[in-house]
Design a protein around this nucleic acid. Structure first.
Lengths: 250, 250
DNA sequence: CTCCCTCTGTACGGCAACGAACACATGAAG
DNA sequence: CTTCATGTGTTCGTTGCCGTACAGAGGGAG
């Protein structure tokens, strides 16, 4: 389904590397399937592998005292799962769950650490990605605090769309409620609102986006800002090489 | 006011460095006063200096579309202001505002980058701090979503106490409301609740903590978890050298 | 076709926080 | 002392979401 010559590096983070770095890196990767609801990494557990999704996407959830969880990040082909290794930590604070089935390049943690040490270009680029993730996390925190369910749902759908490269997702209101940290009923009502305006349609465990620009309008500005963050420090989404603005140091 | 031989490195992040690394590092630092409400760094602006508070503490705020802000982190003598530089980014996504007046060691950004490049021990330790910050950020996001004002207020007071090393703060309900992202009235009511149980007292712009353990009980578990995070990856709060658990990689 | 499980629609009371407004205390400035 | 700005106490109606409950609508298994 990918349009590149080799089916491998359709992950944008890797695609932006120089040919040399990319080839050396990808040698130690295995393409693996991501199946829906698969847990790539449990929170508090050791990180054994890192993942670079090429299709599908992954949610990052933070645990709370009483077993409740809240989604605090989404990873698709623009990112990676396993960022703590970049900082010398091999335990994941977050749970990584596959939201949209697909494919990822996988590398074991030790090899990943080795590549980061040996190839400065890789380390640098992944550091930039980590920075963007942190910004998104802060943005999501504020969004979750201030914005109501409907805009947040719209934002979630758009973000997922961008990462899954698909207009249709197989998930239930119940699941969305879990992600957004709200009641299922709340999701149903918000979904009905979006449906009434012709932005989405849905039936039994499947949601389809009909009107992106409509969704963007009702979604809070957090969606747009999130995209801007990415472009600012990692360059244009589909552009080949890194072309970050002027915020890189030294 | 500090009890160390030299008044300089009472910042725990620096104190945990080896003598050699610390001395080389501190040479390029200047002790500066942190005055209340001073903005150390504006969000979106270039990071010109990094700060290692030794007394007082700093809030990190994320901006929202409509000019509203939300506190997403606190930095005291356990941390630093300017972490994006660690990732090769010289623009701060967050606004850093002095909450509790005090003192910090300041270094200009270029020198800081140089030290990080040249001294692996420093880079590594600061990376660990960054990791803890990220965890706290995720925790705060969930806390802000799920927990009500009173527990959050209790947590905020405890966190500030730990960082300011003082039981009394000069701030108004209005200001606390701004930090917590709620109405001033909400803070007043929560404060009254805590006062009624004898945990705090307050008068016109000054809050005093009377009973830590009481506060800990009403505060959500996020407070305790936050401390655990720090200890897990950076060692005991007041211990001299780094003694992290088993989550360090390689 | 029928049964049954899952998913969605709808309703109810309740609560925490909201926006707005105003009264009262305190302390600094004139 | 008086004035005035600032900080805190209190109230009102409103809103968004909560917890819960139950009815209907698919869709797969038998």
């Amino acid at each position: 389904m990918t349009s590149s010559r080799h089916p491998l590096p359709a992950n944008r983070l890797l695609a932006a590397l120089s040919l040399r770095s990319r080839e050396r890196f990808v040698v130690d990767c295995d393409p693996v399937k991501l199946t829906f609801a698969e847990v790539l990494c449990e929170s508090g557990e050791r990180i054994n592998q890192v993942y670079f999704p090429t299709e599908g996407f992954v949610s990052l959830l933070t645990p709370l005292d009483d077993g409740a969880r809240l989604e605090v990040g989404i990873v698709g082909d623009e990112g990676m799962v396993g960022t703590p290794l970049l900082l010398g930590v091999n335990t994941s604070p977050l749970q990584a769950v596959v939201q949209g089935a697909g494919i990822a390049l996988r590398m074991n943690a030790a090899a990943f650490r080795k590549h980061c040490r040996q190839d400065d270009e890789i380390q640098k680029r992944l550091n930039l990605y980590l920075h963007v993730s942190i910004r998104q996390l802060a943005q999501t925190a504020a969004c979750t605090r201030y914005h109501s369910i409907e805009p947040r749902l719209a934002r979630w759908l758009l973000m997922s769309r961008d990462r899954a490269h698909a207009d249709q997702f197989h998930l239930t209101h119940e699941f969305l409620a879990y992600m957004l940290g709200v009641r299922r009923v709340g999701v149903t009502q918000a979904a009905r609102g979006l449906h009434a305006r012709g932005f989405i349609s849905y039936i039994r465990g499947s949601i389809t986006i009909l009107d992106n620009t409509g969704l963007e309008k009702v979604s809070c500005s957090c969606y747009r800002r999130g995209n801007e963050m990415y472009e600012q420090t990692l360059g244009k989404p589909r552009g080949g090489r890194a072309r970050a603005a002027g915020e890189l140091a030294s």
